[in-house]
Amino acid sequence: MKDRIRIMLGNQEIVKRYIGSRLVWSGGGEILLTIEPTGSSGFKATISFSLKNTVITPNNFDYKQIKSMQADDKPPLSLPEISYLYNEGKYFEIAFVGDDSIGEKIEKYTKKAKIIKFLR
């Protein structure tokens, strides 16, 4: 098991670090996958992304390890369990278990995002 890197101030964890107004460190989880979307569509428990570039998933990639996502420099968004992930060239779709409103919620969260990271 990998140790989680933490910066502490007293008993408070520092989750972001800035130099001026620029975010230089975020204490989010390990990045499993990054996409550059050109658009998205959310419906019920599914979110679909159109992509600028083809996503190449690592051989050892397990989509069930994804626990949250981060759009640009927004705070990470926790995700429910994923039932499947579909990736074909410039189209990327994720379906979630049990939450019929998560697709629309993610669509709003990722609107106009340039980079989306999926975190452990």
Rank of each mutant, 00 (worst) to 15 (best):
L51V: 11
K52G: 07
K52V: 03
N53Y: 04
N53V: 01
T54I: 12
I56Q: 13
I56A: 13
P58K: 07
N59V: 07
N60Q: 13
Y63W: 05
Y63L: 01
K64P: 01
K64L: 03
K64S: 06
S68Q: 06
S68Y: 03
S68N: 05
M69K: 07
M69F: 05
Q70K: 09
A71Q: 03
D72H: 08
D73T: 14
P75F: 13
P75R: 11
P75N: 12
P76F: 12
P76H: 02
L77S: 04
L77P: 01
S78Y: 00
L79A: 03
P80E: 01
E81G: 08
I82V: 04
Y84D: 14
Y84P: 02
L85F: 01
L85E: 10
N87S: 15
N87K: 03
G89S: 09
K90W: 01
K90T: 06
K90S: 02
Y91S: 15
Y91H: 15
F92D: 08
A95C: 14
A95S: 15
F96S: 07
V97N: 14
G98K: 10
D99F: 07
D100W: 00
S101Y: 01
S101R: 09
G103L: 11
G103P: 09
G103C: 07
G103S: 12
E104N: 14
E104R: 09
K105D: 12
I106D: 13
I106P: 07
E107F: 00
K108D: 09
Y109Q: 08
T110I: 06
K111N: 12
K111M: 03
K112G: 03
K112I: 01
A113W: 06
A113C: 06
A113S: 15
K114C: 02
K114I: 00
I115E: 15
I115L: 15
I116P: 14
I116C: 10
I116V: 15
L119W: 02
